[in-house]
């Protein structure tokens, strides 16, 4: 799938997507990213520093949002700008079900000269926003 700039208009919404995150996913991301902070895989240490349990890397929740946008655009190299605040923790339980994050997005701006569209992303876990002011700028053909 590949979207075209001329087919996009402000206000358009991307179909939402649920992503399930388990402890195994966190360990895989830790290895891939090199972020081995103990709070992302060790319950004992996480709770000892006052966290509700093992929590997902903020960067993992951001990366999954980037993946959501790339998939929509049909070209991972098309994301020219991507930024977010980390507003809420995502505790990941030690079970098969894991934690579910729901990603959605809306076109908030288009730039004819640059052939870019600006998307505002929402990532919800348990009704709370995981990412704040999450904005991606994507260049489209």
């Amino acid at each position: 799938m590949s979207v075209k700039f001329d087919d996009i208009s402000v206000g358009e919404e991307l179909p939402p997507a649920d992503v399930t995150v388990t402890r195994a996913d966190l360990i895989r991301y830790a290895g891939a990213s090199g972020d081995f902070n103990v709070i992302h895989w060790n319950e004992r240490v996480a709770t000892s520093v006052g966290l509700p349990g093992v929590i997902a890397h903020g960067m993992y929740t951001m990366a999954l949002g980037g993946q959501y946008v790339s998939e929509w655009a049909g070209d991972a190299g098309a994301v020219v700008e991507y930024g977010t605040r980390f507003t809420n923790l995502v505790p990941v339980p030690d079970d098969e079900a894991g934690a579910t994050i729901t990603y959605s997005g809306k076109i908030t701006k288009t730039d004819e000269a640059a052939r870019t569209v600006t998307l505002t992303l929402t990532a919800l876990h348990g009704g709370q926003k995981v990412l704040g002011k999450a904005i991606a700028v994507v260049r489209l053909p």
Partner: peptide
Amino acid sequence: EFAQAIRSTDPVHTDPEAARALGY
């Protein structure tokens, strides 16, 4: 490895031919 960790199955991350077809 990174693409797999973030659940991407897009060959642009894994197959040089697919990437070249897109101009990379």
